[in-house]
């Protein structure tokens, strides 16, 4: 009974939160609702006894959404509404609606047809983190390493693009300007 109560509570909160994320015009509301929704999703993992994934969900999305906040802070005045100009609202609605529908059908079809089964079922006596580790470092070793390399490439590219004058200290530079202005 408790599982049912918890499941429906978490689902209701998650859906409401993501609804706010999509419909709100205020960037701050949208991001806070996104963060709350992402963290509420971890509740489902805990209900399915996947403690490790639940905690990873909390940690990863805390950090990721925090980075989004940082962007929001730099680009908007987050206390004001964002003015959106949508050229063709009907087209946008149609396209996003169709995409959502296709996703739902693709995910629900195997459940309805009972064609879903665990490829790597949990064994007794193996804890959550171990089970994830075993699958990650045997079956999915190559995709895992490729993803890591891609992230490294992205990081190096980011550093090269952003850090053209990284060897000079900005604070010292400003001080130099002050002394020059003072001398004039």
């Amino acid at each position: 009974m408790f599982e049912a109560i918890a499941f429906y509570t978490f689902s209701a909160i998650t859906i409401v939160m993501f609804w706010i994320t999509v419909t709100s015009k205020n960037a701050l509301y949208a991001m806070s609702a996104l963060a709350a929704g992402m963290i509420m999703i971890s509740g489902f993992f805990f209900l399915l006894d996947a403690d490790f994934l639940g905690v990873v969900q909390i940690i990863v999305y805390t950090g990721a959404v925090m980075a989004l906040y940082a962007f929001g802070m730099m680009f908007f005045d987050t206390t004001r509404d964002v003015k959106e100009r949508v050229r063709a609202p009907k087209l946008v609605f149609l396209l996003s609606g169709m995409t959502a529908l296709v996703l739902v059908i693709a995910l629900v079809a195997p459940i309805l047809g009972d064609h879903i089964e665990a490829l790597y079922p949990m064994k007794e006596g193996i804890e959550n983190p171990q089970a994830v580790g075993v699958v990650l470092f045997t079956k999915y070793l190559v995709p895992f390493e490729v993803a890591a390399v891609m992230l490294l490439v992205a990081m190096i590219a980011g550093i090269v693009l952003a850090g053209k004058k990284m060897d000079e200290s900005l604070t010292l530079k400003v001080e130099d300007e002050f002394t020059q202005k003072g001398a004039q």
Binding site: L28, S32, D51, I58, I59, G63, M66, Y69, G72, T78
Partner: peptide, 26 residues
């Protein structure tokens, strides 16, 4: 008593930093 205790405690403590972040931005 969950078997990923350390991660849970650290993760929830980290999400506590939403408090100063939201406070400052709002």
């Amino acid at each position: 008593d969950i078997n990923v205790g350390v991660l849970f405690v650290l993760g929830v403590m980290a999400s506590g930093l939403f408090a100063p972040l939201l406070a400052g931005m709002a």
